[in-house]
């Protein structure tokens, strides 16, 4: 016991430098973001006068002028990413459930066929996808983004949902069958409520990948008022090129939605993602 205690204490002393390393990491990580916040309150004169320290007075006006432009892009992104998430959540939970719980010919072959294509980089299909979307008359419409985002995100999402449904104990389902539940009832009243954590994870991976996707909107969207945020920020950057305060205020505003979502649900996101994909 005594020796064990001594070990604990030694460990404790060892940990002090580690904590310092952690702090250093933290500062390096956060400093650029703090710089953005500091700059967002500056006028141009203040910005050129002192590049990286805060300076009074604070210019809150930057935020209102940035918001006037940025809100449009945020609304667009919420709509586009929101519809994508809903569609993916529905399709992937049904497909994942079927792949996990049904036995039917070619099941494994079908599933493996889908999964191997996860390696295919999205950019590979950029050219033919554009031609396809153009032929369908979807260029410069939300449909161009949503259709491609949904089909692109479905693979990982179905994979995650399938591994989750597979991990649920058989007794849960047996109990429901014994009570006379039909398959669709088991799905809606038993499986989906149980899978809520994994659905949340799916929603968040989809949110990250669609919210920050730049290259596909760049190819398909041309109207300013239809741009999603990631692309709108690019437009915004060239519109406000010389107005640093407003530019950075816009960046701060644009970061808030995702930060809020992840502040609330991060632990959930990580555990779902890793338990689903790593154990598979």
């Amino acid at each position: 016991m005594a020796s064990l205690n001594r070990k604990r204490i030694r460990l404790g002393n060892h940990d002090l430098p580690f904590q310092l390393v952690l702090l250093a990491f933290g500062i390096v990580t956060f400093f650029p973001l703090v710089l953005v916040i500091i700059t967002s309150f500056k006028s141009n004169t203040q910005f050129y006068h002192n590049f990286w320290l805060p300076e009074l007075p604070l210019h809150f006006g930057n935020y209102s002028s940035a918001l006037r432009i940025i809100w449009r892009y945020i609304v667009n992104s919420v709509l586009y990413s929101g519809s994508t998430i809903c569609l993916i959540a529905m399709i992937a939970s049904v497909a994942g459930y079927v792949f996990a719980r049904f036995i039917f010919p070619f099941k494994t072959a079908l599933f493996l066929g889908f999964i191997t294509l996860i390696m295919v980089p999205g950019v590979l299909t950029l050219a033919p996808r554009f031609v396809l979307v153009r032929d369908l008359g979807l260029v410069n419409t939300p449909g161009a983004l949503i259709s491609v985002w949904v089909s692109g995100g479905l693979v990982l999402s179905t994979w995650l949902m399938r591994s989750y449904f597979e991990s649920l104990p058989q007794e849960l389902f047996d109990a429901a069958y014994v009570d006379g539940a039909a398959e669709w009832q088991v799905f809606i009243y038993v499986s989906v409520p149980l899978a809520r954590p994994m659905i949340a994870t799916v929603a968040m991976t989809t949110l990250i990948s669609t919210w920050n996707d730049l290259i596909w909107p760049l190819v398909t969207i041309t109207d300013k008022d239809k741009m999603p945020l990631a692309m709108g920020l690019m437009q915004f950057s060239s519109d406000f090129e010389t107005d640093w305060g407003t530019l950075f205020a816009g960046y701060v505003i644009s970061s808030i939605p995702l930060l809020c979502v992840f502040a609330v649900a991060m632990r959930q996101f990580i555990s779902g993602l890793t338990s689903g994909s790593i154990k598979a």
């Binding site: 399709i91 049904v94 049904f102 590979l124 033919p128 396809l132 693979v155 179905t158």
Partner: peptide, 23 residues
């Protein structure tokens, strides 16, 4: 089972598999 995975199938085939082959 095939019916239920068909939305997955169709979306995937049109906007993912087809462009991969087309490419």
């Amino acid at each position: 089972p095939y019916l239920f995975i068909s939305p997955f199938f169709i979306g995937y085939a049109i906007f993912f598999l087809y462009p991969v082959i087309q490419s």
